[in-house]
């Protein structure tokens, strides 16, 4: 059941990102985003970067790489959250972090390196 939930959540998150017209009824949005990372230090950085104005909840899970978000669509956007995470050095499912931002991370957080990933497994 949990997996099915994730399925719908993912799907809705994509739709949410795609749709240009904001919905009228409710501006508080509950969604998820894939963010790559490997450890607890990554978790701190990602959650801090996601916690921009308008975001009321940002929780990242190291196993599933899923960032669960609650944010106000009138104040911010999924794209803005994604960009903020990119600037902190992490890749999201939408876009990559710059080389400079990635390199500023601690060596143990080099989530793009398969060797580093292996050591965290």
């Amino acid at each position: 059941m949990k997996t099915l939930n994730k399925f719908f959540l993912t799907f809705s998150s994509i739709l949410a990102f795609v749709s240009v017209q904001p919905a009228l009824a409710q501006s508080e949005t509950d969604t998820t985003m894939m963010v790559n990372g490997v450890c607890e230090m990554c978790k701190m950085t990602i959650e801090k970067a996601a916690d921009i104005k308008g975001v009321s909840k940002a929780e990242w899970d190291v196993e599933s790489k899923i960032l669960t978000l609650v944010y106000d669509r009138e104040v911010t956007s999924l794209e803005a959250i994604s960009t903020s995470i990119n600037e902190s050095g992490y890749d999201t499912e939408f876009n990559t972090a710059s080389d400079e931002a990635y390199k500023s991370l601690h060596k143990c957080c080099y989530y793009r390196d398969p060797e580093v990933v292996k050591t965290h497994q």
Binding site: M34, D91, F94, N95, T96, D99, R112, D113, P114
Partner: peptide
């Protein structure tokens, strides 16, 4: 060299 990339868009050097 391999890199793990989950993003659909972006730069990877």
């Amino acid at each position: 060299q391999s890199k793990i990339v989950i993003s659909r868009k972006g730069t990877m050097n």
